[in-house]
Write a protein that binds this DNA or RNA. Structure first.
Lengths: 191, 191
DNA sequence: ATGTTATGAGACATAATGTCTCATAACATA
DNA sequence: TATGTTATGAGACATTATGTCTCATAACAT
């Protein structure tokens, strides 16, 4: 992570290009993100864009670069509470414009190893809260240690992705409530 | 649905282009699908490709056109059996090369209304078996008629999509079994 | 055998792409 | 303030891609 962006000119270029790429992706998809279009949108020179981001996908990666920060986390000491908070967070994410960028990423990651890596990282940080909630529940004995965490995360988060990305309507409150309730009932029943 | 493709020349063009688009998408993504590339891959003239599919997305739609056929369906008279069969079918789909094309579709449908429509149709036919299984279970009284079918389908199919598309590893047998079992337990508990 | 039509080859103008160079202005430092 | 450094923007340039033509030809239907 290059923190030596001390030169205000570079910092400005980085920032303005990030915003331009996001605007273009949200407006018309990654298809619309060319060096030329970004330069025009950002109001800077075309050569400058090529200098910093030689490949087209570099632009997408740059736009997503500051999303990867995992947030502070602490357990409430109760799985139900933790789960509620984490799934509501995911629900909000599914309603945010960030999803457009994620779909753009997904749509390329299938064929671009570099983007694949970024997708994996973003997925990991995006579900880290969920994972830690489950881990701490295991530590407390609320959950059996035999649980496959990845599988459980997929079962909890999967429906939300499905709703937003495939059914194209963001998950609503009662939908998320159903998922939480069903999972907690399942946990109780198996203890 | 143009069944008047009686002219063998046209039929050949359609078929060879369909295969070419699929090959290109699976190999390098929709990014690689240009009229030029398709013509080269299919071994036909560039003008011919433009004649039949003026827009680039027309090529993708043509490649997906024969996927939309829903299969014959009948209920076994038992929700558990029906569910098992339908989710296994989905599981197999998630391991097939068709997923590449679906991801290409998803990656554009966000910004292209025409593709959005096709995505909706494909989702409907792809989950129709699941839907009918649930409907017939409601008819038999195995399931409460208050169920939100779309929500249930999202909860059943969502995790499978998540596994393949986001986690990038196709759902395995035990994972699918877990989903089926959990849902059936939930149904039993609420009756 | 004859008229019809989809095709392939290629010409053509236009636009996009990627790589340069170079003058300039914003920068850091003394 | 003065001075050397460097990122930038403007544009030239060759190359490639795109979209639209025309036209001879061969595969078609009858």
């Amino acid at each position: 992570m290059p923190l030596d962006d001390v030169d205000p000119r570079v910092a400005h270029t980085h920032q303005t290009v990030r915003e331009a790429v996001r605007a273009l992706v949200q407006r018309a998809g990654f298809e619309a993100v060319s060096h030329q279009a970004v330069a025009a949108e950002a109001g800077i020179g075309r050569a400058t864009v090529y200098r910093h981001w030689p490949k087209r996908t570099d632009l997408l990666l740059h736009a997503l670069a500051d999303v990867e920060t995992p947030h502070a986390w602490h357990s409430s000491g109760d799985l139900a509470t933790d789960l509620e908070r984490e799934l509501r967070r995911l629900q909000r994410t599914m309603s945010s414009p960030l999803v457009s960028e994620l779909i753009a990423l997904i749509g390329r990651a299938e064929w671009d190893p570099e983007l694949r890596e970024t997708q994996t990282e973003l997925l990991a940080t995006g579900t880290s809260g969920l994972r830690r909630s489950l881990e701490s529940a295991i530590d407390r004995g609320e959950l059996s240690p035999h649980h496959d965490l990845d599988a459980t995360i997929a079962r909890l988060a999967g429906p939300l992705f499905y709703r937003r990305v495939l059914a194209r309507s963001p998950p609503d409150d009662t939908f998320v409530t159903t998922i939480i309730t069903a999972y907690l009932d399942e946990v109780i029943a198996s203890s």
